[in-house]
Design a binder for these strands. Structure first.
Lengths: 311, 311
DNA sequence: CTGTTAGCGCGTTCAC
DNA sequence: GTGAACGCGCTAACAG
């Protein structure tokens, strides 16, 4: 099934069918209709390989997932971004890759990476949109309002009369964590955090960080955790030493992952929408590929405080 | 940068370069070496489009994720399968799709779907390997040993002296759930379950199902849940009516998802490995595409009981 | 063992 | 407004 057959069926030449398929102007309404009828009745689908070989596009974009197992916020984040992205890709093929160097023959790429210093996107010679703010390069990106979320968390802790506030900050090369903590600092401007501990993005690391925090600031009464996974560990450690949450210590997380609703007490946290992140990034990339002018270099999606039992 | 240039550089013809690239036999070691040197020094990458247009393969496989939002075990399952699959695809391109009808120009497909009655895989005119046992078609598949896991759970409840056992079974069209419950029944052969409630794969549905179970079997002292998500809901409901776990009722889940370690009490559950599932399915598909004979029609991966506080 | 040749299906000039 | 002709980069016959 190829252009030739469709052309014969419609009583025109290959070129004309091609023109109709590619929305080119200068085809009389009558022939256009004939061609469309032929296409429909033959259930013709263009051959992608031939199309990209002859033309200049591949109609394929890469979704590059550059992450290590223990450096991901939570799996729901990735799943959400993927779901949102594929649905926003408007008929294009999405190839997923873990290693950017395996990627070729694509029109553009969506890169989701925790690390703010990923050197890889630049190696792709196509338009790139990042999911998550980069720390060190000027590429276009879509991100949650991590700063604003941090501010919300900080104001909430202040409203709860917490004045000895500790921070379990996550890694310093993860932009989202950096921004979240910056937001908290901004909300706390008059009375800076009593202690800041960096840690990995796992419950175990969060528990260990909570232990150090308690050691250096024994009277801490509010804790802001850069991710829910960290907060889970903090809650666990606090329970193990008999500290009451929220009576003795308020705990606030970030992500609103499933575990936030399941742990005891349920976790006050800041919600972001991975689906919207992926969808918006896809939209932005598609728009760029379509040649739309004046596209924003960065897009920031709102976050929202969800108050539960831990504060 | 194309075959022509590489050929010129190596002082041979296009065909010879093509032969070397495709591992065809009958090339003298000397010319092979010359070609490989040229390829390396020019950093030549074959054009995928041209390759699939001329040849019979596309070197890309589809990963079809056919799921609705509320019918997924947990997100970690999907991410795991995806991670395992992409790493097992041995250099092939992986295109992800939600709708199988968007899939064309691929050599084969991996289909991950909860529903056992998915009519879609057959529409793809290429080799297909399913992740998860199909209920109604005879396609090749890779699955966790859900039956065996159910047996493990059943034996465990018996060992805990639980004789009034209820089942929160999940949907009857999800093969994994059906198999898990079948395994439980097998372990309980002498004394069948006191009650079986079907439900959706969400905590809320699990909570509602637990309520019905308690209504019809007030003295239930053991509950097997087809998934951890269901078990979370069951635990929540039991706590709300003041039932003690595990003193009054033992609860066992299935999946060993992250929430199983976070809830209170921590959940006894059966562990499966989504990564291995995806990886094995990819391997099986690649082997079939390579024409390997005598491939197994089904592959079943072991599951493992993880005992925690809830039993 | 190696080179030559003929398309794969399509977009894109060109003429008409 | 429409058709004819060329070539994208490659694989797969076929010669030699």
């Amino acid at each position: 099934m190829n252009l030739e057959e469709v052309a014969r069926r419609a009583g025109v030449s290959r070129s004309t069918v091609s023109r109709v398929l590619n929305g080119s102007t200068g085809v009389s309404p009558a022939t256009r209709a004939a061609v469309e009828a032929a296409v429909a009745s033959l259930r013709y689908l263009p051959n992608q390989a031939a199309r990209s070989l002859a033309g200049t596009r591949t109609d394929t974009v890469a979704i590059v997932v550059s992450e290590e197992r223990d450096r991901v916020f939570d799996d729901a984040f990735l799943t959400g971004v993927l779901r949102g992205a594929t649905s926003g890709l408007a008929g294009r093929r999405a190839v997923v890759a873990v290693n950017p160097r395996e990627v070729s023959d694509v029109d553009g790429a969506l890169v989701v990476s925790m690390s703010g210093h990923d050197p890889l996107p630049r190696e792709l010679r196509v338009p790139v949109v990042l999911v998550g703010r980069p720390l060190s390069c000027g590429l276009a990106y879509v991100d949650s309002d991590n700063l604003g979320g941090g501010v919300l968390a900080g104001r909430h802790l202040i409203a709860r009369e917490r004045r000895r506030i500790g921070v379990l900050a996550g890694p310093s090369d993860v932009a989202a964590c950096v921004d979240r903590v910056a937001g908290l600092r901004r909300a706390l401007s008059s009375s800076p955090p009593a202690g800041v501990i960096t840690c990995a993005l796992t419950p175990d690391s969060g528990a260990a960080a909570m232990a150090s925090l308690l050691a250096s600031v024994p009277d801490v009464n509010g804790v802001f955790c850069a991710t829910d996974a960290i907060a889970i560990g903090a809650l666990r450690y606090l329970a193990s030493v008999g500290a009451r949450v929220p009576e003795d210590v308020s705990v606030v997380g970030f992500d609103d992952s499933l575990v936030a609703t399941v742990c005891t007490p349920a976790l006050t946290t800041v919600r972001q929408s991975p689906d919207d992140l992926g969808n918006t990034a896809a939209w932005r990339l598609v728009a760029e590929l379509a040649g739309e002018p004046d596209l924003p270099q960065s897009i920031v999606l709102p976050t929202e405080l969800v108050v539960r039992g831990s504060s």
